[in-house]
Design a protein around this nucleic acid. Structure first.
Lengths: 218, 218
DNA sequence: TTATTTATGATAGTTTTACTATCATTTTAA
DNA sequence: TTAAAATGATAGTAAAACTATCATAAATAA
């Protein structure tokens, strides 16, 4: 994790891990706007000042958990595509990972990936939609997202080196995987998906669109 | 405009119009988080209480200007596709309108569409990324966006009635048109576009992708 | 034209947020 | 075992996000 994101590394102490764990729960429960360090302090049974020793402000904390999520997704992507030997399969697997319903990974005891995924869906964009994107970018706060996007773009270029928009397409796949899930849950008329098991899934929408776009003719 | 968005219709008075006009300027200048009714009151040379007589809170004001923007975009779409007689041309024109660099429309004297477009790019998602989306949706606050999306989805279905994801594709086009422009300006490595005049534009990216996805084979 | 409603201005007050500061105490590491 | 580091407890400040009151000005209806 980027060390500039925190004042004290939350991984290194019990309190730090409780801060991360309870932040994820609390942000998901009340939303990022209503989330305050005071409320979080109550949850972790510490004080406001105690939380401020770990994170400068709540936006940094959001960046931390969002970065954690993207790093984790890239790790999963590497792990699951590692043994695949052609670009087509790698792209398909990547889309499946990104569009899938995330389940909690018990290997990480203080982070609930399922809830974290919900947060990234509904609060993730707020990590970069600020007046200080430029500084945050300079501080490399968006590196995990960029790395993931670049990796997928790499697979796209490997599949079709002539395709002109590998980065934009990769970023769009990642964005749409989350936004379509958000719309499906909250503004379903903006999508063609229902919660019921259907063959019209975010995954097949993205897969169809991607391969149509990058098919060797293009 | 949806009457539930405001307490007093800002169109009907000088102060109301100044509130809208200066909100657009001020939100663009300092960002939605730092934007307060007190600062706005200073700009319009009125008082905080004065602004609160028009809008319940700043989120309603954001919804108001964002809704205004989508209504305006749909109007432009209708106007410019009206004389076209085939779906392909309508889709191409729609994408061009959505991806284009918006210029100020002098017909609307107190609204600067160019700045408004910037706001929708960097703050627009905050209008629905809240814990009260469901209520806001019930109050029909997202109708202008949905109408625009449904119209584009209609053109897509007219072009290829067998295409399975017209709504998701339409929504994605609208979202990507804005997010790709945001990334181009702020996190350019996530895209394949440069500010320089190039044939790799958001417009051609979206057009290529759209027609690849909906070509009659699919 | 006057009476009355309605909009605005001026001011004040409350609760919550987003911090910063201080000092005592506990825990950990050398 | 001692010093350093982390935590807890408490207090305080400035600004944000409202709500309330009352006087005055402008618009409108009788």
């Amino acid at each position: 994790m980027n060390e500039k994101l925190f004042l004290r590394n939350p991984e290194d102490s019990e309190l730090g891990r409780k801060i991360i764990s309870n932040s994820i729960q609390l942000i998901n429960k009340i939303g990022f706007e209503a989330f305050t360090f005071k409320k979080l302090a109550t949850e972790v049974q510490s004080t406001e000042a105690g939380v401020y020793r770990y994170f400068e402000n709540k936006h940094r904390l959001l960046l931390y958990i969002v970065d954690w999520y993207w790093s984790w997704q890239e790790y999963r992507l590497i792990f699951h595509t590692h043994n695949l030997n052609n670009a087509e399969e790698k792209i398909k697997k990547s889309i499946r990972i990104l569009a899938a319903q995330v389940e909690d990974d018990i290997a990480t005891d203080y982070i609930n990936e399922k809830i974290l995924c919900e947060i990234v869906m509904s609060e993730g964009a707020k990590s970069f939609l600020t007046k200080h994107v430029a500084e945050d970018n300079k501080a490399k706060f968006f590196k995990p997202y960029k790395d993931l996007s670049a990796r997928l773009a790499g697979y796209i270029s490997a599949y079709n080196p002539k395709y002109k928009y590998p980065h934009s397409l990769a970023t769009s796949i990642i964005e749409m995987a989350h936004s379509q899930k958000f719309f499906m849950q909250n503004l379903p008329s903006l999508t063609d998906f229902t919660n019921a098991k259907s063959n019209r899934t975010v995954n097949s929408f993205l897969e169809d669109m991607t391969f149509a776009a990058i098919s060797p003719g293009n």
